[in-house]
């Protein structure tokens, strides 16, 4: 509940402030968002499994975002930035889908 509230407030702040994303951060933003989504879906599944832990969630969230950005940055430096971001999106996408399947089983029992 409190997490959803935080999410909504975050969206509202983001829309109201609508800061200009600096040029250097633009390639990392979408990847960071996908990584954060992965952490959130993992947390949701853990919550439904009954093993949710706030600390693990926060740590995984922050590290996911940072590592995703770092990988893309490294890829940019090596000249394979777009390929690496595709790879990151694929891996995180698979994780999100698998977690979503588990969540679905929990919620709908199917």
């Amino acid at each position: 509940m409190i997490a959803v509230l935080g999410l909504v407030i975050g969206v509202v702040i983001g829309l109201l402030v609508a800061p200009d994303v600096p040029e250097w951060a633009q390639p990392y933003l979408p990847i960071a968002v996908v990584a954060a989504l992965d952490a959130v879906f993992g947390a949701l599944r853990a919550f439904l499994d009954g093993i949710f832990d706030d600390k693990v969630f926060v740590v995984s969230f922050v590290s996911n975002v940072l590592i995703a950005a770092l990988i893309v940055y490294l890829g940019d430096q090596l000249g394979v930035g777009s390929q690496l971001s595709t790879g990151v999106v694929v891996v995180l996408g698979i994780r999100i889908f698998t977690n979503m399947a588990a969540i679905r089983r929990h919620v709908f029992r199917a």
Partner: peptide, 25 residues
């Protein structure tokens, strides 16, 4: 627990913020 709660809210807040600025961008 209480401290973790705050961190949880902060993390979701950051997520919402990221989502919003990525979309608006």
């Amino acid at each position: 627990r209480a401290r973790h709660r705050v961190m949880l809210v902060a993390a979701t807040l950051v997520l919402g913020f990221l989502l919003a600025i990525a979309a608006s961008q």
